[in-house]
């Protein structure tokens, strides 16, 4: 069987696409570059929306990216079940595109937060977390100024009751996110967004606090192979 193909999207201002591609390759998949201005998903099996400052964070983080030509292809494909992971700015884009509910707003403390963060994995049924153990605590880097997850009370209640809070901050909430929410999934579990950065935690060589990020990529590979 040929290697699974994971698309890595680059917008103007994306920063983490090279790390994302490297993480995908380390897991044994093919990293397929996807350009924001192309209306072509190049037949990939899954898509990774990496972090950065797409379109300079103008207007709101992810507000402009959400209307990029590539998104016209990605949004219906994701609704149709294509596995999609968004980290940091990628998570913001998924919320702006209404593929995930709620929004990411300015950190409560106003400061840009850059640190190693403990995170609890609360849902291991998604396409991107099936290789973790329920309740497992992992350590990933976070680096964001607008990561405070908010949603109205009804949406939060649905997320909690359906187990769609995938990740929760442990050992302190870095940004004031409601319910200590670090990441969520859609109803089908194929779309996952989180503020922390698994792609920065796959190799000891780079001084990463852990290699816990590998679990995201082994998860999606396992899911694709079994699909």
């Amino acid at each position: 069987m040929s290697a699974a193909r994971v698309g890595i999207v680059t917008f103007p201002g994306t920063l983490d696409d090279q790390d994302a591609a490297r993480a995908v390759r380390l897991a044994g998949a093919e990293a397929v570059p996807l350009w924001h201005a192309d209306r072509d998903l190049r037949g990939v099996d899954a898509v990774f929306l990496p972090g950065g400052f797409s379109y300079g964070d103008y207007l709101r983080c992810g507000a402009i990216s959400r209307f990029a030509p590539l998104m016209d292809e990605l949004i219906p494909a994701a609704r149709g079940g294509l596995p999609v992971l968004g980290t940091c700015n990628g998570f913001q884009i998924l919320c702006e595109a209404h593929l995930l509910p709620g929004a990411l707003t300015r950190n409560a403390g106003l400061h840009y937060v850059c640190r190693d963060q403990r995170i609890r994995v609360e849902n291991t049924d998604t396409a991107w977390t099936c290789e973790f153990a329920p309740g497992q605590e992992i350590v990933l880097p976070i680096k964001h100024g607008e990561g405070r997850y908010v949603a109205d009370a009804a949406t939060l209640a649905v997320l909690e009751s359906e187990g769609r809070v995938v990740f929760r901050y442990a050992g302190g909430n870095p940004n004031g996110s409601l319910g200590d929410i670090a990441g969520i999934t859609n109803e089908a579990g194929n779309i996952v967004g989180l503020m922390p950065h698994p792609e920065h935690a796959v190799e000891e060589l780079t001084g990463a606090p852990s290699v816990d990020g590998r679990g995201f990529f082994t998860s999606i590979l396992k899911r694709l192979v079994n699909a």
């Binding site: 707003t105 950190n107 908010v150 109205d152 004031g176």
Partner: peptide, 14 residues
Amino acid sequence: MLKPEILDPQGQAI
């Protein structure tokens, strides 16, 4: 404007 129930840390700082 941010909805009334949404925390506005920038406004608070001002």
